[in-house]
Design a protein around this nucleic acid. Structure first.
Lengths: 153, 153
DNA sequence: TTAATTCCTACTAAATTAGTAGTATATTTG
DNA sequence: CAAATATACTACTAATTTAGTAGGAATTAA
């Protein structure tokens, strides 16, 4: 499971991506309120994202956060990794959180590892080709599919 | 990430699957030693697997655990779920650990959920068609690939 | 009857995750 | 310059989850 921190990070970035046209700073408190994220927690998360070069910030009154990259360039796999969420189901197949299995005689021959590796590859394939912009696009498509049902009645 | 409990459960079941031909009870301590699992912890895990009908046990001296199903019938997805490991990356797409996102206006229209759903489906597709027997088979194939390199030199 | 084993409840310990407090620093506006 | 309003940053605390243990009861074979 992804951590709440990771989910919050993605939601916050989506908030910023929505306003990307005029990329002016958005206040933490505004994002927090919109997305239902505890304010102080979000503060810490955005700070971390800034250290990783995903967002920029402006201090002082009228300050806030803004995206440093185009929403098409920010990939879900990246955000997940940067906020500490391993994608792999076992440490022995994780790129970023690798740890050997203590009891495993040979990783190369481990059947379980081999399956879990396949799962990781399938997951990464999706997550690394999906950007913030893609997610917003999906949202648009989904709402078009759903809304007509409402207006029809 | 899968819990250690889940990994231990799979390893233990693989141990039993290897001896499935003459399916006589195998002692907890024997499995624990072979697979490098803390004995008492494994005891609790096997007990749980028994309650779920995956393994059977025999008490007393010469007692132990044995598989109740054929290794081809025990699927990885099942073992993971029974031992408490959610496969989905977010609760809102989990079948067995479902929880709504508090802040989500509409799940049907949530772009993030939509992507994570795709990831879950890709993962489950692999995990639910892979049995204990498949894993042992993989192990066999992998060892054939690796060993020739050693003997060549 | 003894030795060896699983059964089962109830813990404890460790690690991780979630979230908060409080102060320093920067920026705008009057 | 001063006040108001942001972020920056460090250092906690609280809650939850995970990992693992203790110890005695029940069962079985020899």
């Amino acid at each position: 499971m992804l951590q709440k921190k990771t989910k919050y990070a993605i939601k916050a970035l989506l908030s910023l991506a929505k306003e990307y046209k005029d990329n002016k700073p958005m206040k933490i408190s505004e994002i927090a309120e919109k997305e239902g994220i505890p304010r102080k927690f979000l503060e810490a998360i955005l700070l971390e994202l800034r250290h990783h070069g995903i967002v920029g910030s402006k201090m002082g009154a009228t300050g806030g956060y803004y995206l440093l990259k185009h929403p098409e360039e920010i990939m879900l796999s990246n955000v997940i990794r940067l906020t500490g969420g391993p994608i792999a189901l076992l440490p022995c197949v994780s790129l970023n959180f690798y740890e050997p299995c203590v009891e495993c005689v040979s990783e190369e021959v481990c059947g379980l590892r081999n399956v879990i590796l396949e799962v990781r590859e399938a997951s990464i394939k999706i997550l690394s080709k999906t950007s913030l912009a893609d997610i917003l696009l999906r949202e648009l498509k989904l709402s078009k599919k759903v809304k007509p049902l409402k207006t029809k009645r």
